[in-house]
Each structure stands twice: as C-alpha cells, then as structure tokens.
C-alpha cells in the first residue's frame, strides 16, 4: 500500500515538474477557453437574448470552466502516449506497483494541471461582470477537481487502446469536440431535440457543467434554464464514472499481450 502511495506521489510529482518546466504549454492551453469566452461568448451575446436572467457571456462561464477542464485533462492523457512512444511507460510497467496506482497517479496529475488552469479562468469572473462570493470559490474549485479527475481517467482509458500519437490525437479530437457541444456548455440541454438530448445524458461533462452551474449561480437555483439535473445526481454520476474509468483503465494496463 505504501509503495502504491509512493508511486502515485512520484508520478504526480514528475508531471508537475514537467508542467512547470514547459511554461509555453500553459499559455497555449489557456488561449482556447479565453477565445471561446470572449470571442464566441462576446459575439453571441449580441444575437442570443436568453430569458435566463443573465448575459450570455455569464451563462456560458461554467461551460468555459468545463471546457478548460475537458481539454486539459483529457489531453493530459497524451502523456501516456508519449510515455509509450519514448519507452518510459515500460519503466513504470515493470515496477512492483499496482497498475491502478499508475492510472490514479496519471489521473491525479491531469486533475492538478487542469484545475490550475480552470482556477486561472475562474479568476476572470469580475471581467465579465459576474459576482462570485469567496465562499463559492472553494466549492467551484472542488467541483473542478472532481470533473477533471473523471475526464482525465476517461482520457487515460482511451489512451490504453492506442500506441501512437497520430491515431490517438485523431480519436481525441473526434471525441472531445462533440463532448463539448453536447454538454450544455453553450446552450441549455433542455432546449435540444430529444435525440441529441439523449446523447448529452450519456456525456459525463454534462453533469460536471451542470454542477458547476449550481456553484457559480447559487442564487439562481430556481431558474429553469440553468439546471438540468439535481446536484446530487451530478455528483453521483461524476463519482461513478470516475470509478468505472479508473477500474477499466487499470485492468487494461494489467492485461498482457
């Protein structure tokens, strides 16, 4: 057990060291949510006049947080592909540690890195005229971590099936963009046609963003368009998905050819 905790610790430490050494990466990953928030959000708010009682730019703010987490945590699993390609994965696989601790270690590093980015985006709330109390911030950060862990383990699960960088990034783009649009980040899930609505229900990001909406707009809890599920459902889905993803990914790692 203590060996496994050591393994988790050192896997996370390695990713953080590398994250700190590559400062350019942080800037480039922050660019995407900023573009969506200000260019898409700013532009759309002129045409969209939602009856949800707030400007569109504020409405999509939890969605943009979700997007930051989605991209950075799912793509953090690219480190698994790099490790496979450059052989470092073998160093971990021959070590006397449980495969689950490798998965959890990787998922936690993805969680930390994307939460850092989400917090940077979160601190922009005054710029778009949003009011967030100091009490809400730890709740939002906590929710971000939960969602990030879930998505990072999904990314790792997908990465266990791919050996090289090219096919992995193709499949990731194929998954990530639909996940983003079918998540209620840009529009309320309720307004979607039933077929698409069903797809959003299968998307863990939907629940994460829904929960973030509870945290970001606590006072507007009664408004019909902001929430799709109850907070308990949101959190339960995220927790169950995380567990399932980690378990399957661990089993996939254990499997020998």
């Amino acid at each position: 057990m203590s060996t496994d905790l050591n393994a988790i610790y050192v896997i996370v430490a390695r990713e953080l060291i590398k994250f700190v050494r590559e400062k350019g990466k942080l800037v480039s990953t922050l660019a995407r949510p900023l573009i969506w928030l200000f260019l898409v959000g700013g532009g759309m708010s002129r045409v969209v006049s939602p009856d949800m009682g707030m400007p569109y730019m504020q409405f999509i703010f939890p969605g943009i947080l979700g997007m930051t987490i989605l991209f950075s945590s799912i793509f953090s699993s690219i480190s698994i592909i790099w490790d496979k390609e450059f052989g470092f994965m073998k160093e971990m696989l021959v070590a006397p540690v449980s495969r689950f601790s490798i998965v959890v270690g990787k998922a936690l590093s993805g969680t930390l890195v994307s939460t850092i980015q989400a917090v940077i985006i979160l601190l922009l709330f005054p710029v778009i005229g949003l009011k967030i109390d100091a009490v809400q911030i730890p709740l939002i950060v906590f929710m971000c971590m939960g969602l990030a862990f879930c998505l990072a383990s999904l990314g790792i699960l997908i990465a266990t099936f791919y050996e090289n960088f090219e096919s992995f990034s193709v499949i990731m783009n194929f998954i990530v963009m639909p996940m983003f649009f079918l998540s209620g980040a840009m529009y309320p899930v309720k307004t979607l046609p039933p077929a698409l609505g069903l797809l959003t229900m299968l998307n863990p990001l939907t629940y994460g963003i829904d929960a973030l909406k509870y945290m970001v707009f606590p006072a507007k809890g009664g408004l019909s368009l902001t929430h799709d599920f109850s907070l308990a459902v949101d959190i339960a889905v995220i927790a169950v998905c995380s567990t399932v993803f980690v378990l399957i990914a661990g089993i996939m790692f254990e499997r020998k050819k």
Binding site: T3, A7, V10, R14, I17, F86, G87, F88, E91, P96
Partner: peptide, 22 residues
C-alpha cells in the same frame, strides 16, 4: 530502447525509480 525521461535530470530519473520501487 532508452526508457529515461529526457526532460528530467539524471538525479530525478533515479529518484523516480527509487520511489517506484519503495
């Protein structure tokens, strides 16, 4: 094939290993 992490220092690579092997 090399299985070192080229971004880490020599010491960090060995330290990673020491943690991993308890």
């Amino acid at each position: 094939d090399t299985t070192l992490d080229k971004e880490l220092t020599a010491y960090e690579n060995l330290s990673f290993h020491a943690y991993l092997y308890g």
